[in-house]
Design a protein around this nucleic acid. Structure first.
Lengths: 148, 148
DNA sequence: CACAATTAAGTTGTGCACAACTTATCGGAC
DNA sequence: GTCCGATAAGTTGTGCACAACTTAATTGTG
């Protein structure tokens, strides 16, 4: 019963440790491009819809990050010349984030990253898909509870 | 093929998102005790062997955190009166971390936390164990690769 | 014993995350 | 048109993570 407090038994620690371990795999790869993992995530969203120029809020909804995290991160991506920010014409509160030519071009240079990461996990494709779906289900369950 | 770059397909994002979502569940619970999640993890290790007073390095090996993270964290736990740090007698380089009476007592007040977290995931016990084991396997695989 | 290499903890600097707050704009009720 | 509440982004402050470095103690080798 109080054995529940043992570190190795806890899913949460396994999750926390695995998340950091995977980020460790990303780090040297992304370092070559001067990117951090959260910056890479922002680029992933932008690459998915290269002509939409989502707002900061829309990026945040996708990644579940708020402006307190995204504003300085986007400023750094802009400083690196990968992204442009511009106030929306019809709603001056919004800031639209678009890719520069350089940011667009980076996509092809990073397209083999997911495969390299998948290999590092040591899991098969089926296991990876199952793991992803379980984790997504957990995340969605938690967020659904939070909204009530 | 380049669809591999889609955010929702990536295990890593699922992992990153799930880890943060679970920390969100912990936050209000641990807040009542003035703890953060990493601080709680340190206490978990200390509760497991309450009479050993592990060194900073030993804590770090267990949690995979370095002194750059642990030193200030332990200083805060000491400030909160939950932990004491003392230089080892036989090796003055080492710092041993022990529980105070207050830190020891906290264990009982937090013993129902794992169950509350498990419920928030929406997963059954079997799924939780399977998830934990898969994640632990991934983490171990990555760390084994890193050592070579 | 001397001293170079190693080890342990701490410090500094950068970049997330997130809470709490501020500023500016927008939309609706009147 | 005016004002009030809501919304969007940014700012500030705290606490991780982690790289790179510093300081101090210890170990190993000649």
């Amino acid at each position: 019963m109080t054995d529940d407090l043992v570190l190795r038994r806890q899913v949460c620690f396994a999750l926390y440790a695995a998340s950091r371990a995977l980020t460790d795999v990303y780090r040297p790869i992304l370092d070559e491009f001067g990117l951090t993992y959260p910056q890479y995530l922002v680029l992933l969203v932008l690459w998915e819809r290269p002509d939409e120029a989502p707002t900061v809020s829309e990026l945040g909804a996708e990644l579940r990050l708020d402006s307190g995290t995204l504003s300085p991160l986007l400023k750094r991506l802009e400083g690196a010349g990968l992204v442009v920010r511009r106030r929306s014409a019809r709603d001056e509160r919004r800031v639209e984030v678009g890719l520069t030519e350089q940011g667009r071009a980076l996509r092809e240079r990073l397209c083999d990253v997911p495969m390299r990461i998948a290999q590092a996990t040591g899991l098969g494709l089926g296991e990876l898909v199952a793991l992803r779906d379980t984790l997504t289900r957990v995340t969605d369950t938690i967020h659904r509870q939070k909204e009530q």
